[in-house]
Nucleic acid binder design. Structure first.
Length: 291
DNA sequence: GGACGACGGATCCAATGAGA
DNA sequence: TCTCATTGGATCCGTCGTCC
């Protein structure tokens, strides 16, 4: 029975590939299995990332393996890759999210590209029991984005404090101070706090899915259930006005000590637009958004 | 000013699929 | 059947910032 099977992951071989064509990769794969004394009779399924030469239904490796062995070898596209891509596309659908992630990357670069600035940050973090070290973003590994957002929220006050130290420190050059000042003014914003908290909520959910899909002990049924539940949860979050209101309130509380005009920030993004009569013949009906 | 490393744009590759 | 746009991924290479 399946329950008695102990599934383990092993790295069999690392080889240079002169060709990236599905057929050649397939031949190398089968040759390696043969060289290692592993019978292809036991091959029941195959899993690759979404590169066309791997998962292609006609000439991809998965199709070539099935053709070569003359029987159906179940192909399962890598769920971790798929969930990563889904989150990645969702995050680049709006300019606000793109700007947020660019800002996080800018923050990471600012502190890590200079030993002096990095030292200031480390010292500030060492003094605080709650601060987390800021993380680099990754294009393909979206767990890094949750970690990055979470770290910035937890360390927000320490990061702002470091900008002050750099601006006032004599050991820093003009350029460092100017960059720090710009970054500080970008970060002390109601919009950024709300976006960070909103994205933290979303990426926490998608991150736990990704972590599960990359875990060593993994079974297909529970993974499928988790994917379905994550989708349900995200749909619920989409329609949950109360949670959104809570995020707005949390954002207000977080930014309170920095003396930010929240209404000004909100109204800038939600200012009243009179739609053209072509779109709405009765523009008086249009509702203006309020906090 | 040189060494070094990170970043990002450009390009390439292999494949799919829509449409002429 | 062919062309073209698109996709995920890999690689190259110039540019820029930092440090000594």
């Amino acid at each position: 029975p399946w329950t008695l099977l102990q599934i383990e992951e092993r790295l069999l071989s690392v080889q240079e590939l002169p060709s990236k064509v599905g057929q050649d990769i397939c031949l190398l794969l089968l040759k390696t299995l043969q060289r290692k004394g592993i019978s292809t009779e036991k091959l029941v399924a195959q899993c690759y990332d979404n590169a066309p030469n791997m998962g292609g239904i006609h000439k991809g490796v998965q199709a070539c393996v099935t053709n070569h062995l003359n029987r159906e070898i179940l192909h399962i596209p890598c769920g971790a890759h798929n969930s990563n891509l889904a989150v990645e596309y969702a995050c680049v659908c709006s300019i606000e999210y793109i700007n947020l992630f660019m800002l996080l990357q800018e923050l990471y670069n600012y502190f890590t590209l200079s030993i002096k600035r990095c030292h200031v940050l480390r010292e500030a973090f060492d003094k605080s029991p709650y601060a987390l070290h800021i993380k680099s973003l990754s294009d393909t590994r979206w767990t890094a984005n949750y970690e990055s957002i979470h770290a910035v929220i937890e360390s927000y006050d320490e990061i702002i404090y470091c900008f002050h130290l750099i601006e006032e420190g004599e050991q820093f050059d003009k350029e460092s101070k100017l960059q720090g000042k710009n970054l500080r003014s970008k970060f002390i914003s109601y919009e950024i706090i709300v976006l960070l908290k909103f994205m933290e909520n979303i990426t926490r959910t998608t991150n736990s899915l990704t972590v599960h899909l990359q875990s060593k002990q993994l079974d297909i049924l529970s993974s499928m259930e988790l994917i379905t539940n994550t989708l349900k949860l995200i749909k619920m979050m989409r329609n949950d006005d109360q949670s959104l209101k809570n995020i707005l309130l949390l954002g207000e509380k977080h930014i309170e000590p920095y003396d930010v005009d929240i209404d000004k920030g909100f109204n800038r993004l939600h200012r009243f637009h009179q739609p053209s009569c072509r779109i709405d013949p009765k523009p008086a009906k249009v509702v203006q958004l309020t906090r």
